[in-house]
């Protein structure tokens, strides 16, 4: 078993977990940087695939993506190590805060810092989407799917699961039929 690879998976995902502020989607820019650019463990397209699968399978999307990348790189153990890596910083940081710091979220310095971080997260997600769009929105049908999903998920309270299932079906109708015939 490739111990070095497993350790690398653990450490890389620990770094990603420790640097992600604002939930699963905010992890995308970190994943693009660490997993796609620095390590070459996945392509932009594969990352989009993992996110789509993470949407309609149980659990936290960021964790699901970690498991996926880890498995692809080093099998079941790889999936487990990447997952442990991504949750490790949370365990340490939250435990310290819970044990020692009262009213953490109400501290003025935390509030100000987080307001700044949120602005940054906006820009990071925008950049991540622009990057992702290059590889996923490639022709008229995919443009239509992108626009429809974006608009509908902004104006309706439908669950992402619905969109993922419908988009998968649309993909089969648009592409699968042609090639199968």
């Amino acid at each position: 078993m490739n111990l070095k690879k497993l350790l690398d998976l653990f450490l890389t995902f620990a770094r990603i977990g420790g640097l992600t502020f604002g939930g699963g989607y905010a992890m995308l820019p970190m994943l693009q940087k660490e997993v796609v650019e620095n390590r070459g463990w996945a392509t932009e397209e594969e990352l989009a695939d993992y996110f789509a699968i993470g949407q309609c399978t149980p659990g936290v999307i960021a964790v699901n993506t970690a498991t996926f990348v880890g498995y692809r790189e080093a099998g079941i153990l790889g999936g487990v190590m990447a997952t442990l890596g991504v949750i490790f910083p949370s365990l340490v940081i939250i435990t310290i805060i819970a044990a020692f710091i009262r009213n953490f979220a109400d501290l003025p310095v935390v509030k100000h810092a987080f307001s700044g971080i949120r602005v940054c997260v906006c820009v990071l997600i925008l950049n991540a989407v622009l990057k992702l769009r290059k590889n996923s929105v490639v022709d008229k049908p995919t443009t239509a799917i992108f626009v429809l999903v974006f608009l509908l998920s902004v104006i309706t309270p439908l669950s992402p699961v619905v969109f993922v299932i419908l988009a998968g079906l649309a993909g089969v109708l648009l592409k699968g039929g042609k090639k199968a015939l």
């Binding site: 995308l28 989009a48 989407v129 995919t142 089969v172």
Partner: peptide, 16 residues
């Protein structure tokens, strides 16, 4: 072909 449809969907969800 499933992923052909899923990728723009995933991007749309993240954009939203």
């Amino acid at each position: 072909s499933v992923f052909y449809g899923l990728r723009p969907c995933s991007t749309g969800l993240i954009a939203a």
